[in-house]
Computed example of a mutant assay.
Amino acid sequence: MSDVVLSCQNLVKKFGGITATGNVSLQLARGARHALIGPNGAGKTTLINLLTGVLPPTEGRITLEGEDITRLAPHLRVRRGMVRTFQINQLFLSMTPLQTLALVVSQQRGLGGRFWSALGRDRAVAERAEQLLAHFHLAEVMDVPTEYLAYGKRRLLEIAIALACEPRVLLLDEPVAGVPAGEREEILQTVAELPSDVSVLLIEHDMDLVFSFANRMTVLVNGTVLTEGSPEEIAADPRVKEVYLGHGEEAAHG
């Protein structure tokens, strides 16, 4: 079995005359904790959109578990084990965390949308939902409609939904974006405790989270890879300090 679970080779994305992604190659190792960083406009989200099928590449190739998925539809990539979260919550505000997770678990297990009956009749669905609620610090608010949850709890629910899809590859798109400082610790702890068999690619501008989480880092600048290495190598690289770390957090969105 290959040690590389997700890779892209020479990915290019052009919007008219603008090259948003220029010959990006990246390999995500099995079980990796890999961070993708870069200043505003570096092309991080565009790259994630290419990897997940939201955008078709102009050139290049994407493989998942050794299979070419370059032209595969996004929902089929999810079925094959590639799941992402978003910078902005994609949640059902009128549903509770328990209802939401039961729905996702039911669909994952081929029960369709019959999660109301599944909660009562399928003990395995209820048990899995309860496990996720406990792991993501949501048990105490499991019956509260999502619209009334604190923003940090919504972010935790979003990551719990992603894990309910049983991913082999998880793409975390700025999990602490917009979360007040007092609510970040739960998210940082939860991200650190993600299952070791799930390979994670993290986009994040919070450098405390990046350096506490990642064992590998890729730096994007102007749609191209500037460098890649261990957190220690990235922190010591004068080019990274010049174009990114030295600019402060306000330059880190994108």
Results as ranks from 00 to 15, higher is better:
Val198Tyr: 15
Lys241Val: 06
Glu127Arg: 09
Gly53His: 05
Leu51Met: 12
Pro195Ser: 11
Leu138Ser: 09
Leu93Trp: 06
Phe92Ile: 03
Glu67Gly: 03
Val24Asp: 05
Leu11Asn: 08
Gln87Arg: 13
Arg71Tyr: 10
Val210Asp: 05
Arg80Phe: 04
His75Ile: 06
Ile48Val: 14
Ala73Pro: 06
Ala150Gly: 12
Glu186Leu: 14
His247Cys: 00
Ala164His: 05
Pro39Met: 08
Ala118Trp: 07
Val5Ser: 01
Ala181Trp: 06
Leu76Tyr: 13
Leu170Gln: 02
Arg79Asn: 12
Pro39Gln: 06
Val176Glu: 00
Leu47Tyr: 06
Ala134Glu: 11
Arg109Met: 02
Leu51Arg: 13
His135Ser: 09
Gly120Met: 04
Ser199Met: 01
Arg79Val: 00
Glu174Asp: 09
Gln9Thr: 12
Leu51Ala: 14
Gly248Trp: 14
Ala118Asn: 08
Gly182Tyr: 15
Thr45Arg: 08
Val176Pro: 01
Gln90Tyr: 07
Val221Arg: 07
Gly31Thr: 03
Ala181Lys: 12
Leu138Tyr: 14
Arg168Ala: 07
His253Pro: 00
Pro145Met: 08
Phe86Trp: 14
Arg80Pro: 00
Val83Tyr: 01
Thr63Glu: 14
Glu127Thr: 00
Leu156Ala: 08
Glu174Met: 09
Val144His: 14
Leu11Ala: 08
Glu250Val: 04
Leu119Ile: 03
Arg79Met: 06
Tyr148Met: 09
Glu65His: 14
Ile234Lys: 11
Arg71Met: 02
Phe115Met: 04
Gly113Asp: 03
Ile69Val: 15
His34Lys: 04
Val191Ala: 09
Gly66Gln: 05
Leu138Trp: 15
Gly182Asp: 11
Pro195Cys: 10
Ser117Leu: 10
Phe213Ser: 06
Glu233Trp: 08
Arg77Asn: 05
Val12Leu: 14
His75Ala: 13
Gly43Leu: 06
Pro39Phe: 15
Pro167Ser: 02
Thr85Arg: 13
Thr70Gly: 08
Met95Tyr: 15
Leu163Pro: 02
Leu138Glu: 06
Glu147Phe: 12
Glu228Asn: 09
Val54Asp: 11
Leu103Met: 13
Arg79Pro: 01
Thr190Ala: 15
Leu72Gly: 00
Ala160Glu: 04
Cys165Trp: 10
Glu183Cys: 10
Asp173Tyr: 13
Gln99Asn: 03
Glu228Ala: 15
Ile234Tyr: 15
Ala73Phe: 12
Asp68Gly: 05
Ser2Asp: 10
Leu156Trp: 05
Asn10His: 15
Gln9Glu: 12
Ser2Glu: 03
Gly60Cys: 04
Leu6Ser: 02
Phe86Arg: 05
Leu171Ala: 06
Ala164Thr: 01
Leu11Glu: 07
Gly66Tyr: 09
Lys153Gly: 03
Leu6Met: 07
